[in-house]
C-alpha cells in the first residue's frame, strides 16, 4: 500500500507547455504533492513524465477513464509506475471537451478502475508502494457512501476539491489548483 506524507495535492490540470509546468512546480509549497492532469495540450504519459522529472517532490498522475478503454487504462497505470510517478489519481474526466463531437468513451467507471489498479498492485505489475487514489465528491450521501466504498475496497486515498467526508479525514487529499504566477 502506498503512503504519501502530505494532505494536499497541488493540481496542474491543464499543462500547455513544458516551461509553464516547470514554472508552476517551482511555486508549489513544501509538503505538497504535485498532481499532473491529463487535460490540456500535453497529455501523453511519456511527455508528462518529462515534466515530472523537472519537478521536486512526489508527483501523482491524474488518470482519466474518459476516452480510454480498459486496456489503455491498464497500460497507463503500468506506464506511469514504470516512469516513476509515485501514484495515480483515478478520475472520470469532464464529459465534453475539444469540439464536443467525439464519441465519449467510458469503458470503466472509477470503482472499476480502482479494482483494476488494485489487481495490478496485487500481481506486482506495479510496485506495492504505488499510490492509488480516487477523485471523489462530498456534500451528499451517495458521493460519501461511494467514497467510503473506495477506501474499504483498498484505495489509499480519496481526493476532494472541497468539503470533507466525515471519518475519512486521514485518508483524504485536498486538491488545490495552482496557476501561473
Amino acid at each position: 500500500m502506498g503512503a504519501l506524507l502530505t494532505e494536499r495535492l497541488a493540481y496542474m490540470a491543464s499543462i500547455e507547455s513544458m516551461e509553464q509546468a516547470a514554472a508552476l512546480g517551482a511555486n508549489v509549497p513544501d509538503k505538497t504533492a504535485l498532481l499532473l492532469g491529463e487535460y490540456g495540450a500535453i497529455c501523453p504519459i511519456a511527455v508528462l513524465d518529462r515534466i515530472r522529472q523537472t519537478l521536486k517532490g512526489p508527483v501523482l498522475l491524474e488518470l482519466l477513464s474518459k476516452n480510454k478503454n480498459r486496456d489503455l487504462i491498464r497500460s497507463s497505470i503500468i506506464t506511469s509506475a514504470a516512469c516513476g510517478f509515485q501514484g495515480v489519481l483515478l478520475a472520470s474526466g469532464i464529459f465534453s471537451s475539444g469540439d464536443g463531437k467525439a464519441r465519449p468513451v467510458y469503458d470503466l467507471d472509477q470503482a472499476q478502475m480502482l479494482r483494476l489498479a488494485l489487481g495490478l498492485r496485487e500481481t506486482e505489475a506495479i510496485p506495492n508502494s504505488f499510490i492509488i487514489a480516487v477523485r471523489s465528491a462530498s456534500g451528499n450521501a451517495p458521493a460519501e457512501l461511494r467514497a467510503r466504498w473506495y477506501i474499504e475496497e483498498g484505495a489509499d486515498y480519496i481526493a476532494l476539491e472541497k468539503g470533507a467526508v466525515p471519518g475519512l479525514e486521514s485518508k483524504t487529499l485536498l486538491i488545490e489548483p495552482v496557476r501561473p504566477a
Binding site: I94, A137, N140, R146
Partner: peptide
Amino acid sequence: PKGVRNGPCDGIKGTACEV
C-alpha cells in the same frame, strides 16, 4: 451520460448531474 455502473462519479454537483 458517462454510463457509470458504480456511481456517482466524481463530478456530481450537490444532487445534480455534472453534464
